[in-house]
Design a protein around this nucleic acid. Structure first.
Lengths: 146, 146
DNA sequence: CTCTAAACAGAAAAGATTTTCATTAACGGG
DNA sequence: CCCGTTAATGAAAATCTTTTCTGTTTAGAG
């Protein structure tokens, strides 16, 4: 938590109550959130939360690398927080519960070679998103009956 | 060209003049287009082209796999046509000219193993987008002076 | 070629996202 | 702790995207 608040300060953004609440929410559940969901949750804590504010906070957080975005199946943008402190890494997203898991898997070197050989081009970076069923959703749990 | 028109028919969509014009445009330049760009180009051929029509055509084409989408740096959705006839494949995008190149590179098997081992989860599919400088943009050409 | 059914296209309206601007909150220096 | 500076916020407006609805076009049968 402290770590994330420091990132905010280091980027010359103020530690406002709404920003802190957004971080708390995303940290509490490592899953994809729509803008509307985030706002809905914030309404529990604040009498007034403008939708533009939520859009702005999420976009700013994305610009400073604090949160990331992923497209859902219908091309709608959703936000999540990264717990990995590596600058560049990829994610696994569960298609059932929307939870996000950070990965160490990265093939940048291989990709650079492939692009150089096949296209005579230069690969600067790549974006990889893996979708499937996470451990929780994969195993039907007999004790859970909801 | 015939190939793409057949896909449209096979998906019970009619071959309208506007749809054909969109296919022609995207085939002519294998690069990313915004909705507004596509509409602007269509205005050359048609006196009236509603923006909703352009949105609809591009989304329908995406649903039947005829075109694909990619996010630009500022998270805006853009469309391009795939020349590869493989069902699942990935793309290289030039950050300078927005050209798109289809790739054969795919690590699905490796990824499945990695996700199984590390997360005890199941990887169903993945999305990979590689960004860099293509052959044209990488080599400064002395003869081109614009 | 004409007719018919089904789907398309444009206009207008609705919904979502972003910008503008006046007020309010954060934070460093007294 | 209080004040001044600077940035953040919400409301309203602007812009972008999607839906609804109705007249038009396509495609296939005759």
């Amino acid at each position: 938590m402290e770590y994330y608040l420091n990132i905010i300060k280091q980027n010359n953004l103020k530690l406002t109550l709404r920003r802190i609440a957004v971080i708390k929410l995303l940290l509490n559940e490592h899953r994809l959130f729509t803008v509307a969901e985030v706002r809905h949750r914030l309404k529990n804590d604040f009498s007034r939360v403008g939708l533009p504010t939520v859009y702005r906070i999420l976009q700013q957080f994305r610009e400073i690398g604090l949160v990331q975005t992923a497209l859902s199946a219908n091309d709608h943008l959703r936000y999540f927080i990264c717990t990995s402190r590596k600058h560049d890494h990829h994610h696994f997203i569960c298609s059932q519960c929307d939870r996000v898991y950070c990965l160490d898997y990265c093939q940048q070197n291989q990709i650079e070679k492939y692009i150089e050989t096949e296209l005579h081009a230069r690969a600067d970076y790549h974006y990889l998103q893996i979708v499937g069923l996470c451990e929780h959703c994969r195993l039907p749990k007999a004790q859970d009956s909801d």
